[in-house]
Simulated scan of single mutants.
Amino acid sequence: MNEFVEIRWKEFEKLGERAVRQNLATHIYGEENVRFAREWLESKRLDQEAALRDATLASQAEANAIARDAASEASRAADAASRTAEAAESANKRATIAIVISIISAIATISIAIYGLLSVAKHVS
């Protein structure tokens, strides 16, 4: 960009987009300045699009990071739930074994009591 164009663009920068657009609409600029003003406005539009694109990419990157963190937390929670289920299953097996042993013990106790009663009854008769 040559020095003349730079000077024009600095003037446009001082005025701001709104004033430059207004000056274009009211035909204040000569033919050469109209071209420079349009180029400057196009440059501003492209800068704004680039800034918006950068902001969008930054937001997407942040959303991706949050999603990765959430997936990691979900995986850890699933692992913990799996370990808890395994522990519960193990406890259930031990409880079942304890119940079976209690039933066998109760049957043995009842059998011994019945045998004892029969023995006493046999001696009494």
Rank of each mutant, 00 (worst) to 15 (best):
M1I: 03
E3C: 00
E3K: 00
F4D: 12
V5A: 01
E6Y: 06
I7N: 00
R8Y: 13
R8V: 03
R8P: 12
W9P: 14
W9G: 11
W9I: 04
K10G: 10
E11V: 11
E11N: 15
F12M: 12
E13V: 08
L15T: 04
L15M: 14
L15G: 05
G16E: 01
E17V: 13
R18N: 10
R18M: 06
Q22W: 11
T26Q: 03
H27I: 10
G30V: 05
G30C: 02
G30W: 00
E31G: 04
E31K: 02
N33H: 02
V34K: 01
V34Q: 05
R35G: 05
R35Q: 07
F36Y: 09
F36H: 13
F36G: 04
R38K: 04
R38E: 07
R38L: 01
W40C: 00
L41V: 09
L41N: 11
R45D: 08
R45Y: 02
Q48Y: 03
E49G: 00
E49T: 03
A50P: 03
A51E: 13
A51G: 03
D54G: 02
D54L: 07
A58G: 10
Q60A: 06
Q60D: 07
E62P: 11
N64L: 11
R68I: 08
R68F: 07
S72T: 11
S75I: 02
A77R: 13
A80L: 02
A81G: 01
A81N: 03
A81H: 02
A81I: 01
R83F: 10
R83Y: 13
T84Q: 12
A85T: 06
A85W: 04
E86F: 02
S90T: 08
A91L: 03
N92P: 05
A95T: 07
T96M: 10
T96K: 06
I97Y: 13
I99L: 14
I99W: 11
V100N: 14
V100T: 10
I101N: 12
S102Q: 15
A106Y: 08
I107L: 15
A108W: 12
A108F: 15
I110A: 08
I110C: 08
S111G: 09
I112P: 08
G116V: 07
L118E: 14
L118H: 14
A121D: 07
A121C: 06
A121K: 06
K122L: 08
H123I: 13
S125W: 00
